[in-house]
Amino acid sequence: MRTLPQNITHYRTYLRMMQAIETYLHNNNFLKVDLPVMLPALIPESYLEVFETEYRYFDTRRSFYLAPSPELLLKRLLVDGVGNCYYLGKAFRNSEPESSKHRGEFTMLEMYKVGADYLQLADTVLEMLQALHVATRPKHTSSQMMRTYQGISFDLSKWEKLTVAEAFKRYAQISAEELFDEEQFIASVRKKGYQTVRTDSSGEHTYSYEDLWSQIYANEIEKNLGTAGHPTLLYDYPIQFASLAKPNADGTTAARFEMYIAGVELGNCYGELSDWKLQHHRLVKEQQKREASGKIAHVPDWGFIDVLKRGLPDCAGIAIGVERLGMIFADVASIADIRLIEID
């Protein structure tokens, strides 16, 4: 463990940004909610591994898990009618090695706006980003909403709005028809030269649509997002990536967006799924996938479904990686550059 006093200037920028987040949300009537991070049950998510710990008292043993997200708690409060709310604190993901943009223990801002759809929440988020810009901008900057990150300029006055289908067409030359048809999609990916089949001792396995989609997204799409002069709002993900998002009326996409600046993903938003039957169905599927993949068998939070039965109000929610946002506003290459303590 080392201290990094050389990062103090960047850290101060990060702090100013955090304070501006709290001020903005307070002024706009979002209730700050302090939450426990050790939970007895979690929403099953097949692509996330969790940290497990244990409470001990004489012969008593009880498993707890570090929260990978505050969603299951905030949604309980939304059902109770708490209204607009947010959590700003730690979240934990296991089996994810540290990189310049990620650490298994990270700071998350998760906020919910009641009565808003996902694109209306995008307007709120943009306004918040503008407030963070004003709080952290270097002195003597002339232009109102212009900012630079690692040499890439962007203007925070508006989003560049792009659907996932438009982005695949523009950057990966994959048509909407191919994108929304799993077989056609896998065939196009194979044609591009990607590995679509894996062989091991138990035979040949074809990679899933989700796996290949993510690889194309990482190789051909993501680096372009938020590099054309504005932050990019990429929206309407294929229904396979709906997770806890509402399906759209088109039947092929979900009400989800992600936001990018200079190729860096900063947040993930859902028009929240309130149909408890569909939610239950998705969680059962995720739980089965978890079991099949040998991940930690945490206690699934089926109580979450009971809560949803009481009726989640119409709302949209977003999770934002706060260190990444700090990295953008401090204009540094890595989230490690805004830390004062490093664990090697």
């Binding site: 692509y47 996330l48 993901r93 089996s95 994810e96 090695p97 990189s99 310049s100 943009k101 990620h102 899933s208 989700e210 796996d211 290949l212 989609w213 993510s214 690889q215 997204y217 990482a218 993900y237 990536f241 997770s243 993903e265 993930n268």
Partner: peptide, 14 residues
């Protein structure tokens, strides 16, 4: 190398 878990689809190695 940089490990990357996009939260959609399997983890990637950049």
């Amino acid at each position: 190398t940089e490990f990357y878990s996009p939260g959609k689809g399997s983890a990637l190695m950049h």
